[in-house]
Each structure stands twice: as structure tokens, then as C-alpha cells.
Amino acid sequence: MFETTRRRALQALGIGGAATVAGCSAEAPTAAETETQRQQVEGTPTTTTDQVAADPTDIPGPIDRDQPETHEITLAMEEVTAEIEPGVTFDYMTFDGQVPGPMIRVRQGDTVDLTVENPSENALPHNVDLHAVYGTGGGSVATTAAPGQENAMRFKATYPGAFIYHCAVPNLDMHISAGMFGMILVEPAGGLPEVDRELYFGQHEVYTDGEVGQQGKHSFDIESMKNENPTYVLLNGEKYAWAAANRGPIEVNQGERVRVFMVDGGPNYSSNFHPIGNVWKRAYRDGGVPENGDFEAYADKNIQTMKVPPGSCMIGEMDTPVPERIKLVDHALSRVARRGMLAEVDVLGDEREELYDPDAHGTSQEGPQYA
């Protein structure tokens, strides 16, 4: 089904050099030309899906082994149409049909045999640049594939941490904005500290030719992207994807320590990631983790808001001593109130009035708040 010659993939791109493949050449097609090409391919995208929002709970479990292994991993580049919010559709570009792409979880010292597949029904070439890889373009040159092709590479995960992966063909900002990013987690040889629950999120901006909530099909808007003026700022690809207003809230149990992995695809906005009603009890900036196992000394403690640059990650842990609804937001709050950036986590359990009494004087008016 798939052809694997890299030369043919580059010919399909209409380019010839590594810098171009990495999205850095002035000779690459413009974003407007790319969008025109995509629209001109009959029936593109051919797939409509009910959901692009990745399930925050659907991630690989912690690694519990002492020796390195070899993993065979395949990522499928899927161009799909889905709703950003009810009545508003958009043509996404994705890894495996979800935003963010699947979390890849390996151990320091593991070897990864990575295959990327670009189905023939897609309009555009794609590839993957993993920030956990020593190699040209983070592997993007080796993995570039035109529609109907696949490509593969092998790499060894030599340094630990949480790292972004993303598409890096010409006009990579457009591809990332449309959904082509995810996280690869390289656990240190000694593993991560044990927690009770883990969740996975990805933030990005979407630039369209419509307004927020404007019904109908939205097309990608190149000028808005150039001006860094997004229509939507999203967590997991849809407006309020895992809030109560959409597919959420996510439920956890009182007393659990909850670890949150977050990747900021951007392509342009930093995130100011904050759990309303909580704090990052331990936080690991830019996804960095210690190699010597001393997590307590390495972590930042009791951090209210984590700055996550585009193209980076964070790992944060929350304690859950009281029942509540935690709102995960970018504390640039207009992105929450106006552009769709919110997830909610419900902590289920019994009141502990010595820690928090919402009705101390019988006048509680608990309700949604954004700050």
C-alpha cells in the first residue's frame, strides 16, 4: 500500500533539501499555496470524525522495568474534518486522528523503531520531528512521506524528560496549528515517582476565517496566523473539550495525587498553565526531570502557574484533599472566557470543613469561576 523511497517523498513535496523539509527554506511553498493545494485535492479530507479531542486518561502506564527495550511504534497522519464546537467544523491534521497525538512513553536507553504512514487519501506530505531525538530535524527528514507513502527511522532515547513531537514539513506552523503535535515521555532509568492518576493535555491555537461560534465550515486563515491572532485557543483540540460543557469533567478521587502532562503545540502562544482551586505541588518546568532520581530536590514546589513555551512541555502534580471542581486553564484568561481553553477535573469525596468550608455562614453561591 505504501511506498517507502525518500526521494519520491521529496519529489512529491517539490523540494530537495533538509532545511526545506524542516520548514526553514524560503523556497518552500507558501502557507497560502499549501492551503490551495489541500483544497484542490478532490474529496480532501475524506474522513469525518465525531471527535478529535484526545482522551486525557488514555495514556500508557508508568514503566516498571530495569532493562531497556525496543519498541515498534507507528504514527498515522490523518487529515479529518470534525467540530471545534457544535455546528462549527474544521479540517484538522492529526497524528492517529486525535489532538494532541498519542503519548509515546519509553524509558531512557530504549530503542524506538518509528514508522509514519501518510494515507493515500491525504492531500499533503507530513513527517515528525521529535525533540527527544539526536538527528537531523529530530527525525523529520527521515520520516517525510507524501500521500500514499510511509517512512521509518530508528533512534535511541538517551536523555529523559517530556518532549514535544510535531510535523515539520514546510509551513510547519500551519500543520501544528491544525493539530499535528503530541508528547514523547522518556522516563529516567529509575522511573518517575508513583502517583495515583495521570492525565494528558495539549494546548494549541487554531486560525480560521470565522469568528468563535460562527456556524458552518471554517477554513484555515493564513493572515490570522501571520498576525498571531487565533480564532480559538484549545486544550485537546476542541472548545472546552474536557469541561462539563463538552466531554467532561474528568473524575478523580479525593486524596489522590494527580500527575498532569501538558504539551504546548503553539505554534505561537506560550501557556500560563494554572489549576484553579489548586496548585502544582511538584512541578517540572519544560518537562525536565532528574537523571539521579532526586525528584524532591529537583522539582519546583507549590507553583501556582507554569509558563509553558510553544514547543515545550510541563509535568505538574496536584494533591486533592477536598472535593471540588478544578479548572485547568491558561491564565491569559480571555483565552478561557472567549476562545475555548478549559478542562475540568472533579474531585469526588467528603467535605473537610477544616480545610475548606464553602457554606461557613450559610450563604454559599458556588458556581463556575474563571479566576
Rank of each mutant, 00 (worst) to 15 (best):
R7E: 15
A12C: 12
L13A: 14
G14E: 04
I15P: 02
T20C: 12
V21T: 02
V21L: 00
C24E: 10
C24Q: 15
A26C: 04
A26R: 07
T30R: 05
R38C: 10
T44N: 06
T48P: 00
T49M: 09
D50R: 15
V52E: 02
V52W: 04
V52H: 03
A53N: 11
T57M: 13
D58I: 06
P60C: 08
D64N: 13
D66Q: 14
P68T: 05
H71D: 05
T74P: 03
V80I: 05
A82D: 00
G87A: 05
V88G: 01
D91K: 09
G97Y: 14
Q98R: 15
Q98S: 13
G101C: 08
I104C: 05
R107I: 03
D110S: 04
D113V: 09
N118Y: 06
V128Q: 11
V133P: 09
A142P: 06
T143M: 06
A145C: 08
K156Y: 03
A162T: 00
V169M: 13
N171M: 01
N171L: 02
N171I: 01
G182S: 00
M183V: 03
V186W: 13
V186G: 13
Y232M: 01
V233T: 07
A241Q: 11
Q254N: 00
G255M: 01
R259H: 07
V263I: 07
G277A: 09
N278P: 11
V279E: 11
E291N: 10
T305E: 14
C313Y: 04
C313Q: 06
M314F: 12
P323Q: 08
L333T: 15
V336Q: 03
G340W: 04
D346F: 09
V347Q: 05
E353P: 10
E354P: 05
G362Y: 12
T363I: 13
E366T: 08
Y370N: 10
